[in-house]
Structures are given as structure tokens and as C-alpha cells.
Simulated scan of single mutants.
Amino acid sequence: MNDRSPPPQPEVASAATYAPQPLQTAPHHASATLAAPVTHYENFPVASLLCPPHLRQPIAAIYGFARTADDIADEGDALAAARLADLAAYHADLMAVAQGQPPSPRWASVFLPLQAVLRSHQLPVPLLADLLSAFAQDVEKTRDAEGYADRAELLDYCRRSANPVGRLLLHLYGVTDAQALQESDAICTALQLINFWQDLSVDIPRGRHYLPRADCAVHGACQAELLALRSTPENVRLISDCARWARASMQIGAPLVHRLPGRAGWELRLVVQGGLRILDKVDALKGGSLHTRPRLHAWDWCVMLGRALVM
């Protein structure tokens, strides 16, 4: 496999540097700006009852934007060229609504709610664009059967695929200090890594490889054995080490739960504990996540709640 440096990314703008233009079209019916409810399975709550009520719609709009883009990149059986073309069109709609223009009809149900949030909360658009860059990279790497050389390369992907979500939420909460941003990045990176190690049995058959080649070499993991989803001693050590990496990142970011106000901090406690609970299950499988996808069940939420209360 050939190494490829990630494309250069735009500088992240602050709220002060982004000023959406007024809409230049007739206003839409109010219901058109309401984001769809969150129905996709997640390891953590999204816009739940713990979320401050006035932020549920903005968070749902951001989630809907990211979830739809991820589905364009990942779901169905479209060819890579079609996925990349759709992501480019999706990006064009993002740029249009950011400038106060109407979106295309295709994704109006996503972009009209997002446009309302861009206008009301001055979201940093480059963070949203970073997500699309990461999704396009996923498509390209899958097309080229290319994985990640080392942890640094994978962390750069996480910087664009996961960290923007946390920064957007902090923007909504009005939390902007450097320590909070760093802790948010650590949590979001951990969540992305946890998702990788949870989804090995799904991603590898789809041609998506997130276990860094340098880590595979350290543990003597054989590529052929990984592709065959075999739980060899080497693969067990590899997955266990990667799980420890994700857990360490989550522990670095966990103090952020005490820095967010009110309900937001409590929801974040469950987000953190949801990720850690999945890691418990990955560890318990002892490499079995290569053929079994661990999921959260009702009793796990009881465990998570108990742990959240004592954080």
C-alpha cells in the first residue's frame, strides 16, 4: 500500500470571523428548518433530554449534516466516483447556505435546518467542511485499498472526522478556552478510535483498514490474518493495545465534564462512559471484535449512569 499525505486543510475560523449573509430567497415554512429526530444507533446520547432544550435543535441539525454525509460516503453500493461526486455536491450546498443562498432540493431537509443554525449561532463553517474532507478521504482510501501508516496519520484523520463535532458543540455552549478545546479533541478522538475497534468486523470486509501498519508490525500481526478476521494471539495483542490507546485519550479528555454547564456536562458524562463501556466489551472479547461487533444494551446504560454519577 502506498502512503499518502492528507490534503491541506483550511484554517479553522472563529465565530468572529464568520458572518453568514442574509437569505436572498423567500423564507421557507418554519417546519422546514426543524432538524429530523435522531434515530440512528449511537454509543452515546445525541440531543437527549439531558441536553439544554434550546440547543436540541441546533445539535440535531449538526448531527443530521454529519450523519447524512457519513451515509453518502459509507452506505449502499455506489461506486467511489459517485460517492465523491455526491460529497462534492454536498460541500457545494454547505458553501451555498453559508453564504445565505438556498440549498439544492436534494438535501434541503438537511441544509435548511443547518442554515438556520449557521445564522442564529454563527457556526464556524471550516469545521463542517473538515468533516466532509475526512469522509472523502475514507472513500479514496477504501477505493485504493489503502490504510494508515501510523498513529500520527490516523490522528490527523480524527482531527477532521471527529474533533470538529466537539468543537462545534463547545461553540454552542459558549465554551472557548484552550484547555476545554484540547479536552474535547481528546474525547472526540477517543470516540472515533473506539468506533474503529468496535467496527472491525464491519469495516474490514468493506475494505476499510484503520489499524495502523506500524502497530501491526510492532505486534507481529499478519495482514492476511486480519483480512480473514482471525483472532490470533498477535491480533489480540494489537487490538488490546489500540483499545488502551483509545482509553488513554478518553481519560485525558474526561475532566471536560466538570467544565460544561448544567445538563450539558451530565450528557457528556454519558458520552464518555458510553465510549468506555464499548472498550470494556472490546477488551472482554479478546480480539473477538474482528468477528463480533460489541453493542450497548439496556443494562449497559445502567452501568454507564452509575459510573457517570461518580465521575
Rank of each mutant, 00 (worst) to 15 (best):
A217W: 00
A217V: 08
V218N: 11
V218T: 12
V218D: 14
V218R: 15
H219I: 10
G220H: 07
A221W: 01
A221Y: 01
Q223E: 14
Q223S: 12
Q223N: 13
Q223P: 10
Q223W: 12
A224M: 12
E225G: 10
E225T: 13
L226R: 09
L226M: 11
L226S: 05
L227Q: 09
L227Y: 06
L229T: 07
R230L: 08
S231H: 06
S231G: 05
T232N: 12
T232D: 08
T232Y: 10
P233L: 02
P233M: 04
P233Q: 01
E234I: 04
E234A: 13
E234M: 05
N235L: 10
N235Y: 04
V236P: 04
V236M: 11
R237F: 00
L238F: 01
L238K: 03
S240Y: 06
D241G: 07
D241I: 06
D241N: 08
C242S: 11
C242H: 08
A243M: 08
R244F: 04
R244M: 01
W245Q: 12
A246Q: 04
A246G: 05
A248V: 08
A248M: 08
S249H: 15
Q251M: 12
Q251N: 11
I252M: 13
I252N: 13
I252R: 15
I252H: 15
G253P: 05
G253D: 04
G253N: 07
A254D: 03
A254W: 03
A254K: 10
L256R: 05
L256M: 04
L256D: 02
L256N: 05
H258P: 08
H258A: 15
L260R: 07
P261H: 09
P261F: 01
P261R: 11
P261Y: 02
G262L: 09
G262A: 15
G262F: 02
R263L: 12
R263S: 13
R263T: 09
A264E: 06
A264T: 07
A264H: 03
G265T: 13
W266E: 09
W266C: 07
W266S: 10
W266P: 03
L268Q: 10
R269D: 03
L270G: 01
V271A: 06
V271D: 03
V272Q: 06
V272E: 03
V272G: 05
V272C: 10
Q273E: 06
Q273F: 01
G274K: 05
G274V: 02
G275Y: 02
G275I: 06
G275F: 00
L276T: 05
R277T: 14
R277P: 10
I278D: 10
I278V: 14
I278S: 12
L279M: 09
D280A: 07
D280Q: 09
K281N: 06
V282N: 09
V282R: 11
D283W: 14
D283S: 15
A284K: 14
A284Y: 12
A284S: 15
A284I: 11
A284C: 11
L285V: 04
L285M: 05
L285N: 00
K286S: 15
K286Q: 15
K286F: 14
G287V: 07
G287T: 08
G288K: 04
G288H: 07
G288M: 01
S289P: 05
L290K: 05
L290D: 00
L290Y: 00
